[in-house]
Amino acid sequence: MEFNVNSTFLYIIAVCVIIFVLAQSAFFLVRAYRRGKQLGMSAQKLRKVIFSTSIFTIAPAISILLGVITLSKFLGIPLPWIRMSVIGALTYELPAAESAASALGISLSQTITDPATYTTVAWVMTLGIMPSIILPPILMKKIKGGMLKVKNKDKKWGDIFMTSLFLGMISAFLGTAFAHIREGLAGYIPLFVLLVSAAIMGICGLLIKKFNLKWLETYAISISMVGALVFAVLITPVIVG
């Protein structure tokens, strides 16, 4: 078969993978939805989770699509499409592709035409990410057992333990907004964006409490995120010039 980074054959593989991902997601969605109803959760509330999550996902999903476009310049569309739909993230896929290319002594400035180069990149991307997919089934029992042990021993400490997991993650990501502020005013942009997002969320919280706007709960995180992204688009040219 003649090699081409955008061949029909590679597109067929990509479509098969996409169907698998959608099937797995639909399987878990239907099971969880049915179980939720059995547990007495109202269909309206469960649908609200689906709707609000869908809205929330749009902006980050578009940024992932941008990752596909970035990688497609040298890998074509199908492989980045597969990688970004299964496990991948641009922060991993790009260094993996670059590392493979540098091992072969080539540059990734042009579209790959040699099939062996292409498969080398595909193997490095695949093998580099395998722990993320192999470890969950192996470690699940241990991790769940450990959590249960903590909770059974002391319920309140169990709750603090769980909250600490969330706060540890959130703190690490909040901290990154300060990483570039020593580079001058442009380095403050992520921090400004973070503060605007936080301020919008704070306003939403006040509106929900003061005026009992329950419906706003569903959209507050999406509104704060999109509001902060619009702010980023507006403020960056002003700061950077």
């Binding site: 992520p190 936080a198 507050a220 995120m225 688009v233």
Partner: peptide, 25 residues
């Protein structure tokens, strides 16, 4: 998506997301 105008939005997805989430927690 590749326009320079929109680039700052894609560069700031994480602070925009964690700012709001941070306030809640």
């Amino acid at each position: 998506l590749n326009s320079p105008t929109l680039q700052p939005a894609f560069d700031n997805i994480l602070p925009a997301l964690f700012g709001g989430l941070g306030v809640v927690y």
